[in-house]
């Protein structure tokens, strides 16, 4: 959608250049002065007009930026976390809930339901904490597979960009000899943040930010982490393909 703006500007500019070149001498003095007057009025009113025209992304006043490596802290303490705990966790946000129908009777210990993470091919960056956690919990309260994906809240310069993350796609397919498989596909997330940046001249005499004043912009670190909490029916036999879950909660015994 925003691609239209540059073309509109180019068209306008071509028009102005055309007018200026061929009709410049026909634009009277008074018209020029009036145009300048209109432009000046727009400039003076721009702060008020801008407030109505735009919805700049608000800084979330209630939350400070996610601490570095918060995601890792969750992993370290995960032993104490339940699904409800995570849902109440302020630094995590549910970005998708998926429910997939499964028939427990179709599977047996010899022919279990497969939970596959093959093909995800997620490697962490050296300087970033990107990774995922998969937790599988057996529950007698569900008849289908319910996957709740949590995303670690991300902030760039005080603006939350969590909603920009693409959730994984969990699907059911048949694999092997008719066996069922829960498969994850990682979708590429593209987050674009537009930020109005004042010119460095404004801060020329502000020694407090002298070092950053004229340097190139640096992308602040953004820690991303995903937790997929998979609720499965209590009696569903399963096996894992790819990586093992970080936690497997056997509900009936309360043990893992």
């Amino acid at each position: 959608m925003y691609a239209i703006l540059p073309f509109a500007f180019i068209l306008f500019l071509l028009l102005v250049i055309f007018l200026s070149r061929f009709f410049g001498k026909k634009i009277s003095t008074k018209l020029s002065i009036r145009l300048m007057g209109v432009y000046g009025m727009i400039l003076l009113l721009s702060p008020f007009l801008a407030a109505f025209a735009t919805d700049t992304v608000d800084k979330d006043d209630g939350i400070t930026e996610t601490p570095d490596f918060y995601y890792q802290e969750i992993l370290e303490n995960y032993g104490n976390y339940s699904l409800e705990n995570l849902q109440n966790e302020e630094y995590l946000k549910v970005i998708k809930e998926t429910e997939l129908r499964v028939s427990t009777e179709s599977f047996s210990d010899d022919d279990p339901f497969v939970i596959s993470t093959t093909g995800l091919n997620v490697d962490g960056w050296y300087d970033r904490d990107y990774g995922y956690t998969m937790i599988v919990e057996r529950s007698d309260e569900v008849e289908n597979i319910i996957i709740t994906q949590f995303q670690q809240r991300g902030f760039i310069q005080g603006y939350e960009v969590t909603q920009g993350f693409e959730p994984w796609t969990w699907t059911l397919d048949h694999w092997g000899q008719g066996a069922g498989r829960l498969k994850a596909t990682l979708n590429r997330s593209e987050i674009s943040l537009f930020t109005l940046t004042p010119p460095p001249f404004a801060f020329q005499f502000d020694e407090g930010i002298a070092s950053d004043r004229f340097g190139g912009s640096q992308v602040p670190s953004l820690n991303v982490g995903t937790i997929n909490w998979i609720l499965i029916p209590e009696d569903l036999p399963i096996r894992f393909q790819g990586s093992e879950p970080h936690r497997l909660i056997e509900r009936d015994s309360g043990t893992e």
């Binding site: 593209e190 943040l193 930020t195 109005l196 940046t197 010119p199 912009s217 992308v219």
Partner: peptide, 12 residues
């Protein structure tokens, strides 16, 4: 391949 973060600076 998984994640792209771009910050476009609109500067005068």
């Amino acid at each position: 391949q998984h994640f792209m973060l771009s910050i476009r600076h609109i500067s005068p």
